[in-house]
Structure formats: structure tokens, C-alpha cells
Computed example of a mutant assay.
Amino acid sequence: MEGGGAAAAPDAAPEREPEPALGAGLALGAAAAGAPLGYLHVLWQREEPAGKIPARRLRRAARLHRRLGPTGKETHALKRLREAANSNDLDTVQQLLEDGTDPCAADDKGRTALHFASCNGNDHIVQLLLDHGADPNQRDGLGNTPLHLAACTNHVPVITTLLRGGARVDALDRAGRTPLHLAKSKLNILQEGLSHSLEAVRLEVKQIIQMLREYLERLGRHEQKEQLDDLCSRLQMTSTKEQVDEVTDLLASFTSLSLQMQKMEKR
């Protein structure tokens, strides 16, 4: 019987297999405390060969990873992404995003790659960042969203892209500017007619119309949006500077009227 007891010892070993589950639980606890073991657990989770991981689990792991802080290699990639966005390096931005670099990561002043691209007026990089999950309403250390920066630097196409990407229109109120204010100032410049070719003026007016359409769409002002659609159709049929100027004047009147309506609504 003693021999039977000795032989039973190896068979008992599998009884202790649940220990890794306990270790995983400790890893999760350590992760919440910010211990390095938690980060290793996140990496282990990502390497699971099983089928598609649920999006909810991926987002949870990403939030955990962000709390734990990036590795040295990742920190370098995050910095490169912001620098590439700031220097209008579209290829590098695209490569880093495809490699999984977090587009929402900010520097010590709260600025993300989207803040830099919006300030520079690079519509292509702005769209690329939004496509990879960049937050159009993320604020920097001064409270500025990418939309604030695009408005302050008069980048109309970027404002349109950000609005389409889910940027909150009321975020502009912090700086005291809305797309209507921006459109009015841009139209005043165009109406002065200083060395603008026909195509340049037509392009500017088209961009302003597109921006206002997105703005009014998000505000739910569908009737005014239809008026803009009519102006856009008239602009497409223009062939002379005079005809474009006529559309510009109509757009300026529309913008001024919309601003007056906005002021009355706030009273």
C-alpha cells in the first residue's frame, strides 16, 4: 500500500494546475496598482491565438495599458507620431498608425497629433488620424480642441473634416468663434478681391459652403442647409468673376443673417 501511495503522488500534480489562474488574477490586481506584472499580463492577453477578440475586451486592455504607461519604444513612437503630424509627414503618420501607435496620446501640454495637424491645416493627416480613432473633442492643457485650433488658424477644410468626424460645434464657443464667424471673416477678405484668380475664389467659396453645410447639419438647421445647397449649385454654374462675386455676396448675406438669428436665439 505504501508503494501505491507513492505512485499516487504524480497523479496529484494536475490538481494544482489552477494556480496560473490565480497568478492571472494577481496580475490583474497588480495591473490596477500599476505594477509591472500587470503590463506583462496585458501583453499575454494580446498574444492569445484564439479567434477574434471582442472589441470591448480590446478597449479595456488599451485603457489598462494606457494607465500603466507606455514602454520606452512606444514612447518614442508616440513622440514620432506627433512630430510627423506637426511636420506634415503623411507617410510616417500612416506607417505609425498602421503599426498601432495610439493617436490619442498627448504630450506634457496635452497636445495630440490631431491638435498639431489641425493647427497646420493638413486635411489629409486630420482625416487619417480620425480614421484610426483620434478623438476630435480631446482638449489640450489650455482647453483647446482640434476644432479650436483649426478655427483660430482659418483652416476651413479641416473644420469641415472635424465636424464630419464628430467634433462638437459648441466647443468653438470657448474661443468665441463659430464656423459662421469664420465664414464671415473669410468672405470679407474675398470680397476685397485682392489678387485672387477666378478658380481660387471659386474654391474658397466652395470650401466655405461645405463647412457651413456641415455646421448647420449638426445644428439641425435643415432649411438653411437647403439654401446653401442652392448657392452651391449656382456656384458650379459660374464662369466669370462677376458671377462668382454674386454668389459670394449672397453667401455673405446668408452668413450675416444666420449670425443675427444665432444672437436672437441666445437672448
Rank of each mutant, 00 (worst) to 15 (best):
E2M: 14
E2I: 12
A8D: 07
D11Y: 12
D11F: 15
A13V: 13
A27T: 08
L28H: 08
G29S: 14
G34F: 07
L37F: 13
G38L: 02
Y39K: 15
H41K: 06
V42Q: 11
V42W: 09
R46K: 15
E47I: 13
P49S: 02
A50E: 14
A50I: 13
G51L: 12
K52G: 10
R57E: 12
L58V: 11
L58D: 00
R59T: 06
R59V: 07
A62C: 01
R67S: 05
G69R: 03
T71C: 02
G72V: 02
K73N: 10
E74I: 00
H76T: 11
L78E: 14
R80S: 15
R80K: 15
E83D: 13
A85H: 08
A85E: 05
A85M: 00
N86T: 06
N86Y: 08
N88W: 04
T92Q: 09
L96S: 04
T101Y: 06
T101E: 05
P103N: 04
C104T: 11
K109Y: 13
R111L: 13
H115E: 05
A117R: 04
S118H: 07
C119W: 06
N120I: 01
N120M: 08
N122C: 09
N122E: 10
H124P: 02
I125R: 10
L128H: 04
L130R: 04
A134V: 02
N137W: 02
Q138V: 01
R139N: 06
R139Y: 01
D140W: 01
T145K: 05
H148R: 10
A151T: 14
T153M: 01
T153V: 05
T153Q: 08
N154W: 05
N154A: 02
P157R: 03
I159C: 13
L163S: 03
L163T: 08
G165V: 03
G166P: 05
A167P: 07
L172Q: 02
L172M: 12
D173V: 09
D173Y: 14
A175Y: 04
R177Y: 07
P179E: 05
A183S: 13
K186S: 02
K186E: 09
N188E: 15
I189N: 01
L190W: 03
L190H: 01
E192P: 07
H196W: 03
L198W: 08
E199T: 10
L203N: 08
L203Q: 14
Q207T: 04
I209A: 01
I209N: 02
Q210C: 06
L212N: 05
R213L: 06
Y215M: 06
R218H: 11
E223Q: 13
Q224C: 04
Q224A: 12
K225T: 07
K225P: 00
E226M: 11
D229A: 14
D229S: 13
L231E: 09
L231Y: 12
L231V: 11
R234P: 03
M237Y: 03
T238C: 15
S239V: 14
K241H: 08
E242V: 10
E242N: 12
V244W: 00
T248P: 00
L251H: 03
L251E: 07
S258C: 15
Q260R: 13
Q262D: 15
